[in-house]
Amino acid sequence: MKKLGRLTEYVITVLIILSINFFLPRMMPGDPFLFLSGDQGEQISAYSDEQIRQYKACYGLDQPIFRSYLSYLADLFRGRLGQSLYFNESVGHIVLRRLPWTVFLVCGAILFSTVLGTALGSLSAFYRNRLLDNVLYGFMMFFSEIPAFLIGLFFLFVFAASLGLFPLSGALTSFSPDRSVVQVLKDIIHHAVLPVAALSLTRLGGMYLLVRNIMISIIPKAYMRTARAKGLSRYRIFIRHGLRNALLPLTTRIFMSLGTLVGGAVLVENVFAYPGLGLMISQAVMVHDYPLIQGIFLVITLLVLSANLMSEVLYRVLDPRVKDGEG
C-alpha cells in the first residue's frame, strides 16, 4: 500500500516536470524568438524561419494546447526529445553522447566521497574528542561548506594552470588516433582527477559529518554492547554491527543529496570544460537552443528521480524491518 503510494508520488512528480517542461515555452515573457534575435553577448545566433517553424511544430506552439500536450507526451514515450536548433541534430543523440561523462563524474565523486567519508567518519566517531577527531572535524567542516565549483576553480588554477600537473580542460586528448586502451584510460583518468576531486571534496565533508553522527549514535546502542560482550574482534564489531546499521541512513542520504550533486557536477563541468551534460546545457543556454536545454533538463531530472526510486527499493532490501511493516 505504502509502496504504491510512493510510486504514484513519483509518477505524479514526473508528470508535473513534464508539464512544466511543456508549458515553459508558453510562459516565456514575450516571443522567445524576438528575444533570440536581439544583441546578446558573444555568440549571436539568429535562427532561420525554417528553424523557428520546426521548434514551434515540435512543441506544438502552433496547435491547440491540449492536443499538442498529448502529442508531446506521445513523442517523449517514443524517446524523441526533439531537434537541436543550433547543432541541427537530434537532442537524444547529443544527450546520449554527453551523458556518460556526467555519469562518470557523478559516480566517481559518489564512490570516492562515500568510501573516504565513511572511513574517516567512523574513525572520527571511534576516536571521538581526541586529537584526530578534532583535526578531521575542523577540516571537514571547512570543506563541506565551500561549493564544488569554487574548489574546482581553485584546483584548476593551482594544479592545472600554475603547476601544470593536470590538463586544463576536456575529458580526452583529441587527435591521437592510435593509442592503446590503457593509454586512453590513463588519459581519461588524468583528465578526470581534478573535476572528480573537486566534486568529491565538497561531498566528502557532508558524508564525513553524516557518518560521524550516525556512528556516534550507534556506538552506545545495546547491540554494540552485546557484540563487545561476545568477544568479537574490533574489526568485526565495527563492520558487521556498526557499519551494517549505519548503511541504512547512509544510503537514503546519498540518494537524497543526488540532486545537489548533479547541480554541482553541472558547474564543475563548466569550470573544467568537461564535455558532459552540464557543459552542454550552458552552451545551449548561450545559444538559446531551447529544445536542447529542455531535453537535457528532462534527462537529468528523470535520472535523479529514478535513482531516488531505486534508493527506496534498496532501503527495503537493506532494512529487514521495513519489509514486515507492510505485511
Binding site: 545495546a222 552485546t226 561476545k230 546499521n245
Partner: peptide
C-alpha cells in the same frame, strides 16, 4: 578478551536492540 563469552557469557536484559536488528 581471554574470558569474554568463552568463559563468562551474559544474557542481557531483553530490549528491542539487544540483538542487532539487521542480522
Amino acid at each position: 578478551k581471554a574470558v569474554r563469552w568463552k568463559k563468562i557469557a551474559m544474557v542481557f536484559q531483553n530490549g528491542s536492540e539487544v540483538l542487532n536488528p539487521v542480522l
